[in-house]
């Protein structure tokens, strides 16, 4: 009896996914921690569409099976994403683990998913009937709950090309390497001619899903630095209410304090 299959094209992968109960296997660094020889894997590392990093007019498109090392070494990858991927695990993990797996795993601690959230990236999902492109924020429905049909695969991650240069990223872990985020924060502040063109923040490892509240960040968009300063208290208060940590290895108060400290630091560095 066949328990595992390797797909060589996206079409083949989607037919296999539809007709068999298989676990999509890209990097495997999360799956294999609980290795079970009875597992039925659909190996996706030979699907060309999922291996490439290309650009179009608006997006850099990362194939779901691209490893963190491939992303770090690729000239098209935005610096914010390289920065976050460089802090994942260690070389042994980065050489194998994939961005698609990091997102599909559904963990709020996923370090590359944090960057996809703060950049309002989109996911290209496909099944044998067709495909759909959704904002990554809509993909996460709750703790390990994903908007992914049983016959669908994450094919690509579409990250906006522009406006990501002025970023702030901090991963708070218990050690430098092989660390799981205790709190992670990413912020983007795009300022043109003294006006906030874009402000985006995301908070990882805090709640069931990575927190991204566009409506609060929008308070500062379109404002001058002076106007943003006047709104700062209201903005911080809104996030203070919106960030509701859950208890994990570290306490709720600690997580909340770190989030708010990093948010303040992010504003201050940008003159707000």
């Amino acid at each position: 009896m066949v328990n595992c299959v390797t797909a060589h094209s996206l079409e083949e992968a989607l037919v296999l996914r539809k007709n068999h109960e298989l676990i999509p296997y890209v990097g495997g660094t999360d799956l294999m921690i609980h290795a079970d020889e009875k597992s039925k894997y659909l190996f996706l590392h030979k699907v060309p569409e999922m291996k490439q990093i290309v650009e179009d007019d608006d997006y850099i498109r990362f194939g779901a099976s691209c490893t963190f090392t491939e992303i770090i070494e690729h000239s098209l990858s935005p610096k914010i994403l390289k920065d976050a991927c460089s802090q994942i695990g260690a070389p042994t993990i980065r050489n194998v683990g994939s961005i698609g797996g990091n997102i599909g795993n559904g963990s709020p601690k996923a370090d590359s998913a944090l960057i996809c959230m703060v950049t309002d990236s989109k996911l290209r999902l496909a099944n044998s009937a067709g495909e759909r492109i959704i904002p990554i924020k809509d993909f996460y429905l709750g703790h390990k709950k994903l908007d992914l049909l049983p016959d669908e695969l994450i094919v690509e991650i579409l990250m906006p090309k522009n406006g990501l240069d002025n970023y702030y990223h901090k991963k708070v872990g218990a050690r430098n390497a092989l660390a799981i985020s205790r709190v992670s924060f990413a912020g983007i502040m795009d300022i043109k001619e003294n006006k906030v063109k874009n402000c985006a923040t995301a908070y990882g490892a805090v709640s069931d899903v990575i927190i991204r509240v566009n409506s609060i960040d929008n308070m500062l968009i379109g404002k001058t630095i002076e106007e943003a300063k006047e709104l700062k208290d209201a903005y911080l208060k809104a996030f203070d209410q919106a960030i509701v940590p859950i208890k994990g290895r570290v306490g709720i108060e600690y997580r909340k304090d770190v989030c708010m400290n990093l948010l303040r630091d992010f504003l201050e560095i940008n003159g707000i």
Partner: peptide, 8 residues
């Protein structure tokens, strides 16, 4: 370099 424990 890869961890052979995490490779199927």
């Amino acid at each position: 370099l890869m961890n052979s424990c995490l490779i199927a």
